[in-house]
């Protein structure tokens, strides 16, 4: 397998007060404390969310080490903050994947340049992204192919049954909330890299996105490839579950890459029909049909 399928992982964490378990706007303190992490730590849309991203990792083992290092760092920073503010009300914060009680109004926006011009709806949530590299010559075909499996990955990873302190009746309310954001659903089918590049170019020219290249540290991946995403919400599985989920994502990319290299492939389904499965997955997770 000459293609290495290198990986990059991004994780978003919500910052919660361990006493009230409500979201806390604490990003400025976390950014200051995390200066040693360089561009591996970033603010997100809300001040109660912190994002960390690994460098490009040679394999899943290296990715796991990088993720573990970043998570430990965040937890240590939160613990240091707790010790520094001992005795005060709202004294400590913990990094977590998702909190379910706090209302959107609790989450103040950041001045992050990525979100500076965003005037759309705001909803605080957190997720993780798995990036897998492929040879450019077949990356669009791989992305087209992965689309069919996004509902399956979502079924494994549903992790948000509550919203604003209430049961929602679905297992991934985040998937429904993000419908309000552009480019967050299962992407269209692209016929070629040029077809996709024209789409990205239009978005850049019309100020819909920035330069189309950012996010993963040191990896100028076209950002819109995020569209081939599913909310890989935190902790789909207990313990090392995130790692296993990422391995499945990598395996899917490797499998599809191998097929396309041999001029094989899978059928390209329309977004409409794939969305049927996505809805079933977000509603009932693994227990649906």
């Amino acid at each position: 397998m000459p293609q290495r399928f290198t990986l990059g992982i991004e994780e978003e964490f919500q910052l919660v007060d361990p006493v009230t378990r409500e979201l806390k706007s604490h990003i400025e303190e976390m950014m200051a404390a995390g200066a040693h992490l360089g561009d591996q730590i970033k603010p997100e849309l809300h001040q109660s969310v912190v994002e960390v991203g690994t460098p490009v990792c040679a394999d899943i083992h290296e990715a796991r080490q990088a993720v573990t290092h970043l998570r430990r760092s965040l937890i240590e920073m939160a613990e240091d903050s707790r010790r520094a503010h001992r005795g005060r009300r709202h004294a400590s914060r913990s990094a977590t994947g998702r909190t379910s009680r706090s209302r959107t109004a609790c989450a103040t926006r950041t001045s992050s340049t990525r979100w500076r011009t965003w005037r759309g709806p705001t909803s605080s949530s957190a997720c993780t992204f798995t990036w897998v590299s492929t040879a450019t010559r077949c990356s669009i075909q791989v992305m087209n192919g992965v689309r069919a499996f996004l509902p399956h990955l979502l079924a494994l990873s549903v992790n948000s049954p509550f919203w604003c302190g209430r049961k929602t009746g679905v297992k991934s309310v985040r998937s429904t909330i993000f419908k309000r954001f552009p480019r967050t659903q299962i992407p269209d089918f692209y016929y070629s890299w040029d077809d996709y590049a024209k789409y990205v170019d239009l978005l850049v020219r019309t100020n819909s996105i920035d330069d189309g290249r950012e996010d993963l540290v040191g990896h100028p991946a076209p950002r819109v490839l995020q569209d081939a995403r599913v909310p890989h919400l935190r902790h789909p599985l207990p313990g090392r579950g995130d790692d296993r989920h990422r391995r499945l994502v990598q395996a899917l990319v490797a499998k599809l890459h191998g097929l396309f290299e041999r001029n094989l492939g899978i059928r390209g389904y329309s977004r409409a029909i794939l969305m049927e499965n996505k809805f079933r997955a977000l509603k009932r997770g693994l227990d649906g049909r």
Partner: peptide, 22 residues
């Protein structure tokens, strides 16, 4: 990819495990 053992776990888990939402 060096993921045989983890896929075996996923297989067992997908058959009868609970999601984070559960």
């Amino acid at each position: 990819l060096g993921s045989r053992e983890e896929m075996r776990f996923l297989r067992e888990w997908a058959a009868s495990g609970n999601t984070g939402a559960d």
